[in-house]
Design a binder for these strands. Sequence first.
DNA 1: TAAACCATGTAACATGTTACATGATTTT
DNA 2: AAAATCATGTAACATGTTACATGGTTTA
Lengths: 183, 183
Amino acid sequence: MSLPHAILTALLEKPSSGLELTRRFDKSIGYFWSATHQQIYRELGRLEADGQIRALPSEQPARGQKKSYEVLPAGRAELARWTAASQDPKPHRDVMLLRLRAAAVVGTAGLEADLRRHLDLHRLQLAEYQEIEQRDFPPGRDAPQDRLRHLVLRAGIDLETFWTQWLTHALEEFAELPGSEAV
Amino acid sequence: MSLPHAILTALLEKPSSGLELTRRFDKSIGYFWSATHQQIYRELGRLEADGQIRALPSEQPARGQKKSYEVLPAGRAELARWTAASQDPKPHRDVMLLRLRAAAVVGTAGLEADLRRHLDLHRLQLAEYQEIEQRDFPPGRDAPQDRLRHLVLRAGIDLETFWTQWLTHALEEFAELPGSEAV
DNA sequence: TAAACCATGTAACATGTTACATGATTTT
DNA sequence: AAAATCATGTAACATGTTACATGGTTTA
């Protein structure tokens, strides 16, 4: 149950329409919570029915007409409650690690190319994060209101750094493996 | 579509019953792919209907009777195909990062305690992985068949190391934040 | 023999994904 | 006026979660 809270956070940062939200979920928010426009519209409908958000009265709601939402007090209260509530960390799911374990049984044929491709993708993402850091958080002490945002970006940078290092190491190991055929 | 492949991998490593698989998904496999027993039984039924696995003929299948499965050639072929196929990395979803971003809007009240709790949990997990490493991969060159297994464990260790460091850093920032009340 | 546990499931629901539909606005 | 794009949605399905049901085996 995190998508509604991701949407409430985004709307508190800036009231938006469904498509604008979708765009933001493709960029900054999407770095740690992704969602398609279908999910977003469905959830906007639920949140509105539940009295946590409302459509801005300015625009008339017709099909194909832009409709922006803002957060109501009930929505802000729910988000504050959720943020403070104790929550167990969810177990990760990582497909690449699963594929590596499978490769240990059925052979590594074909896997190396995709490891290389992923390495490139993670390097690109890392470079993008580092650009954002240089632009939005220049060296020196962050203003208090920027501390949390910088902390979140740091997590992204460090995670991408980890993956590039791990994939590099994995490729080195592959180079040394006796054969890459199926067992 | 990764759960069936996780199950095929587990069954190739060792033919098992549903409950035995569930236990293995709570331990080693669960470190990067979790599943409940309900998911596992549902998927075993599908894989059997699809001719990728079969129940070992030795035991008679009755409700409450143990039923073990083994992988058929079609299942092994499908797993090899999936392992080698190019797959895009899935966008992460991390609830704690989302909560931090929400806290930047609605205030950090109550969040610090859960950060501490998560730090403890990640430290425990890290210690568990390090124990496994010392036990299963003593210093020195791994045998070729252990390389991939060690690589996967290394990812777990490095990820948990990252989280303990990041959470420690986050708590330091919290200590310096002006106030922890809602905005 | 009652309780606890082992083992396999069913049912209902929540969430996420994929394909498609439809009206409004802008561009060529 | 046709095509492209913006914007909001529906429908069908796949996957994951939570609660409960049922029979068999062991232990107090």
